[in-house]
Write a protein that binds this DNA or RNA. Structure first.
Length: 105
DNA sequence: AGTAAGGCGGGCA
DNA sequence: GTGCCCGCCTTAC
């Protein structure tokens, strides 16, 4: 558990319902914009999955990306939260994107 | 403790 | 839109 992963998890669990974010944004908010892959990894190997809505985190390309419990599960959760998805990709991504505050980390 | 491989992504060609 | 390469973190040997 590094400081980076701790920030990632901390930021992720702060994402409100109906809002989503990208691994890139998450990694950037955590302090490493280039550690996009590591951000997803932190969510995948997170220690407290219960408090961490990793399903609200998607790829910057608009694709939902992967999911430990199955991406279909992730899609269902997102749609239930009010995020429209078409063929595995977010429709109004930037309209649902969550902006992290500087005080979040 | 050190080295090598893997993973839920991002960017460029 | 697809394919390839890169960089970062975590885990296993």
């Amino acid at each position: 558990m590094t400081n980076f992963s701790k920030k990632v998890l901390n930021l992720t669990k702060q994402i409100p319902k109906g809002k989503i974010t990208t691994y890139k944004q998450l990694a950037a908010a955590a302090g490493n914009p280039q550690a996009s892959r590591a951000a997803g990894n932190a969510l995948n190997k997170n220690t407290r999955p219960i408090i961490i809505p990793c399903h609200r985190v998607i790829k910057s390309t608009g694709k939902v990306g992967g999911y430990s419990g199955g991406k279909e599960k992730k899609l269902a959760l997102l749609k239930k939260e009010g995020i429209p998805i078409k063929e595995g990709r977010i429709i109004n991504l930037k309209h649902h994107l969550h902006k992290f505050k500087k005080s979040d980390a």
